[in-house]
Amino acid sequence: MKKLRLAVYGIDHNHCAAKVSELKSMPDLFEICGVYCESKEAFNRRGKEKCYEDLKFMSEDELFSLKDLDFILVEPAVPNLVKFAKVCIDKGYHIHLDKPAGVNLKEFEELLNEAKNKNLIIQMGYMYRYNKAIRYVLDNVKQGKLGNIISVDCQMSTGLDSNFKKNFLMSYGVKSPAMYIYGVHLIDLIVTVMGKPTRVIPLNKKTMIGDLDFEDSGFAILEYPNAVCTVRVNASEVNGWERREFVVCGEKGTIQVKPIENPTQIIECYKNEAKSWSSCGHEVGLTPQDYRYKDQFVHLSKMIQKIESNPYSYEHEYLVHKLTLEACGYRFDE
C-alpha cells in the first residue's frame, strides 16, 4: 500500500491524541501533514500532548491548502463533530469521523447523503468493529456457528470523576449523555449482528452521584421478532471497565467477551459440550491487542486505495445513530 497523507481537523475529542499517536506509530503507512486546533481553550486542554510535539499546527485555511491530502481525521469536541465533518465533505475529502454524530439526525442524514453522492468515505470512530475479540464473535456469527441468534447483551461502563462528567458528558447537550457516548458502540454491534429492531425501549436514569443532575446510567432494550437485545452503560460504575462485555447467544452456542479490552477474554460454549446445571465454557486463546485504532486506520487506507470495500453502508451508519438517539429518549416519525 502507498503511504497516505492526512491532516487533523480539530483536537478536542477525547480520542484524538491516542489516534494521532497510533497513526504516528505507522510511519510507512501514514504522514500527518498538519493539525488545526479549533480554539485557544482546546489547545490549552489538548495541544501540549506529547503526540503533537513534532507536528505543525496551522490555520484552517492553511490546512485546506495542503496538497494531495488523502483523508482528514475529524476530531473536534463532540458537539462540533458533524459541523466539522460537513466542511470536509463539502470540500471533497474522505474522513474518519469520531462519534457520536450529533443530536440532529437530519443533519447527519444529509452529511451521509452528500458523501454517498460524491463517493466519499465516512469511516465512523467505532473502534470495537476492529477489536480482535469482537471480530472473533462477529466472524462466528457470520459463519453460522451459533445458529439463529436469540439474544445479544452488551455493557460499556466506566467510573468517571465529577469534573470529567461536568466538563464533558454534561456538555454534550443530549438527554442521556452516557447512553449517547458509550451506547452507540454497542448498538453498532447489535445492528451488525441482528439488523434493524422493531422498537427501542430506553430506561435511562440519574444516579445523582456527586449531586450531578444528568442521566449517567443508561439501559435500552432493542426488540426483535424472536429476540431481545440489551445495552447497559454507566458513567459512575466502580470497576466498570472490567465489566465491559459483549455476549451473543444462539441456538447452537454462546460466546462472551468480557472484558472487551485491556485485557480481553473470550469464553465460548457450544451445544454439544453444554451442561444444563454447570459451567462448561472454555477460553479462546487470542493474541493480546495492545492498541485500539491501528487496524481501523489500516482498513481506511485500503478502502481509500480501493483494495477493500467498506462493509458498513451509509444506511447502516444512519440506522445506528438513529437507534442511539432513540435509546437516549428521542423519538422520530417513520
Results as ranks from 00 to 15, higher is better:
Leu4Asn: 01
Val8Asp: 01
His13Val: 00
His15Glu: 02
Cys16His: 00
Cys16Arg: 01
Met26Arg: 06
Pro27Phe: 12
Asp28Val: 05
Glu31Thr: 09
Ile32Tyr: 12
Gly34Ala: 09
Lys40Gln: 14
Ala42Cys: 13
Lys48Gly: 05
Leu55Phe: 04
Lys56Cys: 07
Glu60Tyr: 05
Ile72Arg: 04
Glu75Asn: 11
Ala77Gly: 09
Asn80Phe: 07
Lys86Gln: 11
Ile89Thr: 01
Ile89Cys: 03
Ile95Met: 06
His96Glu: 11
Leu97Ala: 06
Lys99Asp: 03
Pro100Phe: 02
Asn113Glu: 07
Ala115Pro: 00
Asn117Met: 10
Arg129Leu: 12
Asn131Cys: 10
Asn140Pro: 06
Lys142Phe: 12
Lys142Ala: 12
Lys142Glu: 10
Gln143Phe: 10
Gly144Phe: 08
Leu146Met: 06
Gly147Met: 09
Asp153Lys: 13
Met156Glu: 04
Thr158His: 08
Leu160Trp: 00
Asp161Gln: 08
Asn163Ser: 08
Ala178Pro: 03
Met179Pro: 06
Leu186Val: 11
Leu189Val: 13
Thr192Phe: 07
Lys196Ile: 14
Pro197Met: 13
Pro202Arg: 01
Met208Ile: 11
Ile209Asp: 06
Asp211Pro: 03
Asp211Leu: 15
Phe214Lys: 05
Glu223Phe: 14
Glu223Arg: 15
Pro225Phe: 14
Ala227Leu: 09
Val233Pro: 01
Ala235Met: 05
Val238Leu: 15
Glu245Gln: 15
Val247Phe: 15
Gly250Tyr: 03
Lys252Thr: 03
Ile260Pro: 01
Lys275Pro: 10
Ser279Leu: 11
Cys280Ser: 14
Cys280Trp: 03
Gly281Tyr: 05
Asp290Arg: 15
Tyr293Asp: 04
Tyr293Thr: 00
Asp295Val: 04
Leu300Met: 13
Gln305Asp: 09
Ile307Pro: 06
Ser309Cys: 10
Tyr312Met: 04
Val320Gln: 03
Cys328Asn: 07
Tyr330Arg: 08
Arg331Tyr: 13
Glu334Ala: 15
